[in-house]
Design a binder for these strands. Structure first.
Lengths: 345, 345
DNA sequence: AAAAGTTTTTTACATGCGTCAATTATTGCT
DNA sequence: AGCAATAATTGACGCATGTAAAAAACTTTT
């Protein structure tokens, strides 16, 4: 890099003969400056190496152009897909996304929220940690910022906007499907890492009752808080199959990662789950994890519309931070899931 | 939140009767202030709501305490695991990690690098995009900052530190293993998204030659730049098996995600890859993707030591930014992979 | 060519906090 | 109690930019 480094706008100003305030306006929006000035600046920037200081600009602007996003896990393709759709939507709207991962730790989540506040982000989107998370963190963000909760909803929070999947619909749909084409499913719960775990369980029970079947839930050890879903599914069903129980049952797993573990347990015991073999073992999941089509057998599931959720969360946030939030009501946006019928159920 | 909001240190100073510079020192390091002052501040902070402004602090400190990380994909558990180990290591050292994902776009990668520069991050770690990425970006970062490249290495860059897996060793080891317990493997390449793709291919060929076997590579369409690895593995082998070719071959896939697609292709054609059935189809991968133990059959692979790589990258970066970089030589740290023998090969 | 309108520059102040030299308070010692 | 030594605090200045108002330069219109 041969260009001389210039550190401040002041220097740049005297280097290319354009006043500093004009430069300031140029860097915020080139169209706010006359054609001639813009050209002079542009050609000047080709001779020197200068970038406005990120912090100095952000400190003084009334709007930082940044939105903060907190997700609980990074090692989960569901959340990374969600993140991607948020980043895409935000980028299109001209916003920069700052991502923080709470690593399933309420303390980290709280710190991340404080960081966002101290950065004056224009708004924040959070996928909550779960039932061991500190709801005051969300309330505080909601009080101070345009704020949207995503994916999983603590039902005790009354004034917070939310975007997520309609689990009553999605879990209901797959429950109904399973009942229709085979034995009524047993629900294989997942570690209660978030509120969705309970919502799906409740949705399953409700649908089963509606259809006149007896719901049956294989619960989880409440101590078991870790997020190793596949391991959980494998361990529970391995144990079950070893005792020769439920060898030809239908399983609806609380999510696909649990289902992947379940598939493994089946294979380990020489069982071949599948929709095609009526009367035999069946396994289905929830989410449409990207690997579902590559499992053996391919995994039947309900897709969460990740793109729509991310897009809607950003849309709602933008509406709020642009002051278009005319009616100050809480908005809860529930998006339908779509059945993905494959081989396993 | 009942506590009154306080925006500046100045206000806080007059609110709790401690001078502003003292407050400044307290927030940087509470131990830099006398016991009595610390207590007074602490009790004061319980009565009001104040957080130092992120930008103002960062702007003035000579060191920002932040390190920037760029990864090419978010939808890949390998990179998220890497990220996690970096975050852990950095957090322990008291640094904040700012993550940016380039989404496989050189322009975004470049912009992310510029952002880091304008933020005065103390250092940067980058996992390169691949052979269509702009090497000048890395050179520029390396000139301006403590900088470490990670995971995949452009061999034309001569003065840039690197931490990654020793593919000659890792790929060599699994090639050797496969030759030892069965038919010499065919190499199923992956889309050439990064330099590792070529390194592994070269390592395979080298080892095969060493062992006196004829290497055979199933290449990729050079146009095919997308990152849908599973789909690639599935498509290529599905096609192959449909033509009744290589039905009982040994496949070494360039990474696990390709291998997962390969497993699916095998299952689709009623084939059962496995180490136990000598003489039959075998499939192995590379990386130890977290889902390997849950595939059917479980996937034999070579694990990249993600934790060690992340830790080493951070260690090296810290050494550089602390000025302990006594010998100014380029450091290339290659970490061994470990065979994970499972069912599939 | 003068008036009116537009854009740019200048000037001056603001932002929130880091930092250092100078000052003040505290402690230890006799 | 008095003094020196040490620790803590404070005042004043700096950082890189945003922003508003007033002055100056340039364009367009008549």
């Amino acid at each position: 890099m041969l260009k001389p480094k210039i550190h401040t706008m002041e220097e740049l100003s005297s280097a290319i003969g354009v006043s500093r305030p004009t430069l300031s306006r140029y860097f915020q929006d080139p169209s706010k400056v006359s054609r001639t000035s813009a050209n002079r600046i542009l050609s000047g920037l080709e001779r020197v190496d200068y970038t406005p200081n990120f912090f100095a600009t952000r400190m003084n602007r009334k709007t930082t152009g940044m939105i903060g996003v907190i997700i609980p896990y990074l090692n989960d393709l569901f959340f990374t897909r969600l993140l991607e759709s948020i980043e895409t939507a935000a980028m299109q709207a001209g916003y920069t996304v700052i991502t923080q991962c709470s690593h399933a730790d309420p303390a980290i989540e709280k710190r991340a929220a404080e960081t966002f506040l101290s950065m004056n982000v224009d708004g924040a989107i959070v996928a909550p940690l779960g039932n061991h998370s500190d709801l005051q963190v969300y309330e505080r963000l909601n009080d101070r910022l345009p704020f949207v909760l995503m994916d999983s909803r603590p039902d005790t929070l009354s004034d917070v906007d939310f975007v997520g999947t309609d689990h009553l619909q999605s879990t209901g749909a797959i429950t109904e499907y399973m009942c229709r084409v085979g034995a009524p499913p047993v629900f294989l719960a997942m570690p209660r890492v978030n509120f969705n775990a309970l919502e799906r369980e409740a949705a399953y029970i409700k649908k089963m009752n509606e259809l006149g079947f007896e719901p049956r839930v294989i619960g989880v050890d409440p101590i078991d808080k870790h997020d190793h879903f596949e391991g959980h599914g494998l361990a529970v069903l391995d144990d079950m199959f070893s005792r020769q129980e439920l060898l030809d049952a239908s399983f609806l797993c609380a999510n696909d990662r649990v289902a992947i573990g379940a598939l493994r347990a089946a294979a380990k015991h020489g069982l071949e789950p599948g929709a095609l073999r009526r009367g035999g073992l069946r396994i289905a999941g929830h989410d449409d994890y990207p690997l579902c089509p590559f499992m053996t057998p391919t995994l039947t599931t309900v897709a969460q519309d990740v793109t729509a959720i991310g897009q809607a969360a950003v849309d709602r946030l933008l509406k709020k931070l642009r002051g278009e939030n005319i009616d100050n009501n809480q908005v809860i946006l529930l998006i339908n899931g779509a059945l993905k019928l494959r081989e396993s159920a």
